[in-house]
């Protein structure tokens, strides 16, 4: 560990910095540069998505009809609320209210689980219908009609169609799987980042419990919060693109 020097006012910082605030500024700048690389990574996907939706507009329109925008909307609100609570927790730490900060972080993690729960439900619904990415795509319109409500039981017997099925397009456009490829790749990578964000916040809660953070030194929580806000930012762009084309 780069050995740390404790300053006169109780704050501590690594030996190669001038003081704890200098370290805080540098760490924050470093986190922002990392966020920039995350933006570029997701951005590459968005560029691919928009260009291909320009090339195959009907594929992406029909694809969007398979998605239930109400679930998307719910997820957006969940993530916005979680951003709100984690911002509050930073504020609490800054003014020394460790207890409230912990609760806010807890709410944020629960929102994360909620988000992943909704995502899991949507995925299972799609797996069930056979709307899988690329070469695993084996969705046949008639199974949609005779499809059982996906409560997870084996569906060897045909059952009535799912209420949220808005499109009964008998004949799908030629390379339909591409929409679902983009859907699963984008939401999959975003979901992984949500999970990473939740682990960071749980770790921050652990250290908060241990009393590592005080108004003078909370860089780690600030980093976790910024990462979480970025995950929310990406979802803000993902929601209209995927669900509301």
């Amino acid at each position: 560990m780069a050995h740390r020097i404790t300053d006169t006012d109780g704050s501590h910082y690594a030996f190669h910095y001038k003081n704890s605030n200098h370290e805080f500024e540098a760490s924050k700048f470093g986190i922002w540069v990392f966020l920039c690389t995350e933006i570029l990574m997701f951005g590459g996907l968005f560029v691919g998505y928009i260009l291909n939706s320009g090339k195959y507009p009907e594929v992406f329109e029909v694809g969007a009809t398979f998605l239930d925008w109400k679930l998307g909307f719910l997820n957006t609100v969940i993530l916005l609320f979680s951003s709100f609570t984690i911002a509050l927790s930073i504020r609490n730490i800054q003014i020394g209210e460790q207890k409230k900060a912990f609760n806010n972080l807890l709410v944020t993690v629960l929102c994360g689980f909620g988000f992943m729960g909704v995502k899991g439900y949507e995925y299972s619904h799609k797996f069930h219908l056979g709307l899988l990415p690329g070469k695993f795509f084996n969705y046949t319109p008639h199974t949609a009609e005779s499809d059982s409500h996906p409560t997870g039981e084996a569906d060897e017997k045909p059952a009535r169609s799912n209420a949220s099925e808005t499109s009964h397009v008998s004949e799908l456009p030629k390379n339909m799987p591409m929409y679902f490829s983009f859907y699963f790749v984008m939401t999959g990578i975003h979901g992984t980042h949500v999970i990473i964000g939740m682990c960071l916040i749980l770790w921050a809660m652990l250290r908060l419990k241990r009393g590592d953070f005080d108004p003078k030194h909370y860089t780690f929580v600030e980093g976790a919060a910024l990462f979480w806000h970025l995950v929310d930012l990406v979802w803000i762009y993902l929601f209209p693109l995927l669900y509301l084309v």
């Binding site: 691919g48 291909n52 990415p133 690329g134 070469k135 695993f136 390379n175 799987p177 591409m178 490829s181 983009f182 699963f184 790749v185």
Partner: peptide, 10 residues
């Protein structure tokens, strides 16, 4: 890699 494994078709 996804193209090779899942044939995402991009």
């Amino acid at each position: 890699a996804f193209e090779k494994m899942f044939g995402v078709g991009i």
